[in-house]
Structure formats: C-alpha cells, structure tokens
Amino acid sequence: MDNIVLQVKNLNVYYGSKKVVSNLNIEIFRNYITAVMGPSGCGKTTFIRTLNRMHEFTPNAKAEGSIILNGQVLDKMDPILVRRRIGMVFQKPNPFPTMNIHDNVIAGYILNGIRMKKSDLNAIVEDCLTKAGLWEEVKDDLYKKGTFLSGGQQQRLCIARALAMQPDILLLDEPTSALDPIATAHIEELIVELKKDVTILLVTHNIAQAGRVSDYVTFMYLGELIEYGTAEQMFTAPENEKTNKFLTGAIG
C-alpha cells in the first residue's frame, strides 16, 4: 500500500531477559502524525528507538520481528542508512555545542563527510530553518553557536537538523518535555506544519498534546499496543477499557 510508510509486524524487544515491547503490530500512514501515548515505562520510547535501530547502542537490547520501511526490510538495511531515512529528535534539545547554527543544521552532512557545493548547503540551511520556523529569528546569527539560543529555539534547531537529512519519518521523543508552555505551543504548531513534508511519530506522555497534534493515536501499556485509531475516535470513544482509564486519569 502506498500510503503506508512503515509496517511493524510481531515486534518484541528485550532488555536482557526482560521483555519491554511485546508482540507489537502497527502500520504508520504517510504524511500523518501518529502519537504514541502511554504511562512512563510502557515501552513507547523503546519502541520508537527500535524503529531507527538506536536500540543497538543500548547494551543487552535485542529486537525481534520485522519492520518494513517503504517496502524494505529494516534489518537488512545498513543501520547508518536507516538513521538517515528515519530521523530523531530527543527530549532535551541537543545542538552540537562546538558548531554554529549554520553548521548544526547541516551537521549530518559535515559529520558524515558528505561533500556538497557551498551554495547547495546554504540552500539546505535556509530551507530547513524556514521549515522549522527558525529562519527569521536566526538568519542574522547563523554563525553564532547554537547553544546560545533559548530551549525552544534549540529544539527547533534540532528539528531543522533532522529535516536536513530529508528523512521519510521523523521520530519525536517527548520533544517538548523540557520546554516551557509557550515554546511547547510553538513546537506543536511546527509539528502540524511539518506533516506535509514528513511522516511524524510523536512519543508523548502528555495526553493533551497528543490530542492537539496528532491524526492517529496509539496507546501502549506494559509493553503492549492496547489500541490504535484516529485521534477523534480515541479521544471521544476509545474501544478498550484500559485506554479509557488512561485518558480519564485512572491509570498512568
């Protein structure tokens, strides 16, 4: 199917002997925002980290099952290529402290040693910063260090950096949990804007945020995918009792 960008079948993830994600099946739709909700420790972060194979850096982590990205089996791809196709933004803004704003955006090119014409790189910088809603704010300070920006701006810089690799999917791991409400609102607007360019998977423990931003919502509990549906359906009439309890604050 053309509108399915990512297909996960029978995914099990273990940390040592502990099962963190069990038998997870899901299909992610192209150019939509899918929120992954659940109480802390439900395996949602682990789940999205397996999607770009970042779990391989965690000692003892092991994933079973198949993940198919645009018809290609993820396990058979080079992990480095996987991470370029599936970008990731983390909880805490993490721009490279030794680089200026300009270089931070194209850090993926610089660090990977991809050589391009200077004018092309500048175009990428402007394009991605514009998409991340940061261009107007930083266009005169492109050669200053990224760490002098505010938290929200730093996070948008990180989003621009991920966009620069032109990923198919962007994984956002609680991208606003370290930000104040106004910066959070900015990022949320940005996420909604971005869905026309990229498919977004948003991990959040903030129910309200999942509601505001997402088109599809999944609810995970104790490593299992409990329910998956449109945001409207999940927020007005969830089918599963556990989802209902979570949304009404009875669990989590």
């Binding site: 290529l81 990731m88 993490n94 993926g108 990977n112």
Partner: peptide, 28 residues
Amino acid sequence: PHSLKEASLALGVPYYKTILKVLLPASL
C-alpha cells in the same frame, strides 16, 4: 551529555566518527 552522542548517531554518523568529530571536540 549522553544526548549529544545520540544526536550524532541518530543522524547516521558512524560510531568512530561520532567520537572523533563530536565527543572529542566538545571535550577539547
């Protein structure tokens, strides 16, 4: 911060380049 290393790895930068180009410059 560990997140810095992850940022680099998540951009598809190989492990050895992450250490040489991100971690060491930051701790220079």
